[in-house]
Nucleic acid binder design. Structure first.
Lengths: 142, 142
DNA sequence: GTAAACCTTGACGTCCGTGTCAAGGTCAAG
DNA sequence: CTTGACCTTGACACGGACGTCAAGGTTTAC
């Protein structure tokens, strides 16, 4: 299977496939031409990688958990990797709650009837603004 | 209030504050020095902007909904603004679904008990792999 | 007077998955 | 032989929210 076929088979561009290889996410043999040659399992691997990208994981993380996917048998250390994936999952859960909270806040802004009470505002700047429920802002270090 | 104080008060870097101003998210007067001067309400504004950034909104969107937060009184055009906020709310709902979807994908890969069944793998390459619950891959055109 | 701590604008760097162009090599069909 | 579809590596571009450095001006403390 050459790169164009794999591209068509997976819906992922050739450029992206070469990038995956460069990132250590995808393997290929080489023909005497220099052309890349993929086995059929590459379709599964690319699918998995795409899933992980769509799940918001970075190349680094995917590279770490990927040996579980294409090695013969996972050898013990898989527990660590699964733990890592679980961390990412938990992070997503936190983001979920976070965004749900924001939405609820906007819903509150919307619920107080802007069209019925034209004097109300999004932010009560001349009020205390103490009950706006903002979170850990002072810890915005990166 | 000068920029350094506002930075300390909000936990947002001076660079970021200037960026907010450049993006039309934050206003400042100027002292004869050229130094920026902020009123105390800027703390609220910055907090709000941070909240919105953290919720995943872009500068453009925040700029659109922000007039409700710092203008004197919303004057009549509030209906438009409410519509805009409602759009943002819907956007948040989409993000919520998006993240929930990511989490579900990870859950799918995590669900089959890796630590209890040490022989199992993330991807069943030599199995059929048909029940792995991957979704619309053939339509991954951008 | 001079150091330190602030401020200014401007511009380039970062990350990351990918698009896109450049300048070529390879191969099958006509 | 030529055309055209395919492949190669290399390199630049992007968007977004900043970090960071440069080169300077201002204010405060001693």
């Amino acid at each position: 299977m050459r790169i164009g076929e794999l591209s068509k088979a997976t819906g992922v561009s050739s450029r992206a496939l070469r990038y995956y290889e460069q990132q250590g996410l995808l393997r290929s043999e080489r023909r005497p031409n220099g052309y890349r040659e993929y086995g059929p399992e590459s379709i599964e691997v690319v699918a998995f990688v795409q899933d992980m990208f769509h799940a918001g994981l970075s190349s680094d993380v995917i590279r770490d958990i990927l040996p579980c996917a294409w090695d013969e048998r996972p050898r013990g250390d898989c527990a660590e990797l699964v733990a890592r994936v679980r961390q990412v999952r938990d992070e997503l859960v936190r983001q979920e709650h976070h965004i749900a909270e924001r939405r609820r806040r906007l819903d509150t802004y919307l619920a107080d009837g802007y069209e019925t009470r034209p004097g109300s505002r999004l932010l009560s700047l001349d009020d205390q603004g103490a009950e706006l429920g903002r979170s850990e802002r002072s810890s915005t270090k990166r």
